[in-house]
């Protein structure tokens, strides 16, 4: 008789369920159906025959994948770019937040903060356009280099420049925006702590070292975890919009590799297999990072 009661309760809540419905349908269609579509990684999928009619090939796609030299290159580039970003892009907003908090001139502080958000609102398309213009052979950067007697550099075709460019544009676009979360953490510090430190005769640097930095740690732990978890995920937009055929050996990452094989060459199964490898590794890294974080600090993401 319990079942009947449950049904009655559900019926009583039918209006609430009808509110859930559109959203849940969208999630099922656009988030869960694609999960089911991962099956084609184990098939030789043809659009004409669909998931049910295409032949199963087991791990054949994966075998081809791991023998492809370009796939290995894509993995190397993805990890390298993300590690560089972890070293350079990640600390930038923290540094920026601390510097801002140390600035006593309120007007300038607000102005700089507002300006630093600005690039976040440019799309990668626009950022690629802007930097393409700045770095052109006759662009501003080359003119400045010219003042020092350096010959114009064609940045877009220079192998060595692509990784730094991803770090520079990444920091430029999101640095100020990512600082928000740290700025908020700093504004939550109890001012009495600083007052007490004043009475104890602590200088500015001591206060940064012993009050400001520790206050950032909980936030920093989470953002660091999330960054590490994205190690296998280079982000499609930025890379795709900046790369060109001449520098693919440093600019091809997993996401663009999948795009090219899947949507340009229509090798659906092959590209899906590559995507599956990427998701699984990502997931494994997330779990591992979270476990390590929990063991060392006592708390993690979940």
């Amino acid at each position: 008789m319990k079942g009947k009661k449950v049904l009655k309760e559900i019926w009583a809540q039918r209006t609430l369920y009808s509110m859930l419905l559109p959203g849940i349908i969208c999630l099922i269609l656009f988030s869960y159906l694609p999960l089911y579509g991962l099956l084609i990684a184990f098939q030789d999928y043809k659009i004409s025959t669909g998931v049910f009619g295409s032949p199963w090939v087991g791990f054949e796609q994966f075998a081809t994948l791991f023998q492809d030299h370009d796939f290995a290159i894509a993995i190397r580039n993805t990890v390298a770019i993300n590690l560089l970003k972890l070293v350079f892009c990640f600390p930038a907003p923290i540094l920026f937040a601390i510097m801002l908090s140390e600035l006593r001139l309120v007007g300038i502080k607000k102005g700089v903060q507002t300006l630093s958000y600005l690039p976040h609102f440019f799309t990668w398309v626009i950022v690629a356009g802007i930097f393409g213009d700045l770095l052109a052979t006759d662009g501003t950067v080359n003119r400045i280099l010219g003042v020092f007697g350096i010959d114009p550099v064609q940045f877009s075709t220079e192998d060595w420049f692509f990784w730094p460019l991803m770090v520079i544009t990444g920091t430029w676009k999101e640095g100020g925006w990512n600082a928000i979360i740290y700025i908020a953490a700093l504004s939550n510090i109890n001012p009495e702590l600083y007052e007490a430190a004043d009475i104890d005769g602590a200088g500015r640097f001591a206060k940064i070292r012993y009050i400001t930095l520790p206050a950032l740690m909980p936030t920093l732990r989470i953002t660091l975890l999330l960054s590490i978890a994205g190690l296998f995920n280079a982000g499609f937009d930025q890379i795709y919009l900046f790369q060109n055929p001449l520098i693919l050996n440093v600019a091809e990452v997993l996401d663009t590799y999948i795009y090219k094989f899947g949507l340009s060459n229509r090798m659906y199964s092959y590209a899906t297999a590559a995507g599956l490898v990427q998701s699984l590794v990502n997931f494994a890294i997330l779990i591992a990072a979270n476990t390590v974080c929990k063991k060392t600090t006592g708390s993690g993401l979940y």
Partner: peptide, 29 residues
């Protein structure tokens, strides 16, 4: 009070961690 609230929340949250990826999504769409 919503019955199954936990289940539906989980259904939503899980999508933040798993995704079918570019190609399966393209095929579905």
């Amino acid at each position: 009070a919503l019955r199954g609230r936990k289940f539906f929340s989980l259904l939503c949250l899980a999508t933040m961690f798993f995704s079918g990826g570019m190609i399966p999504t393209y095929l579905v769409i």
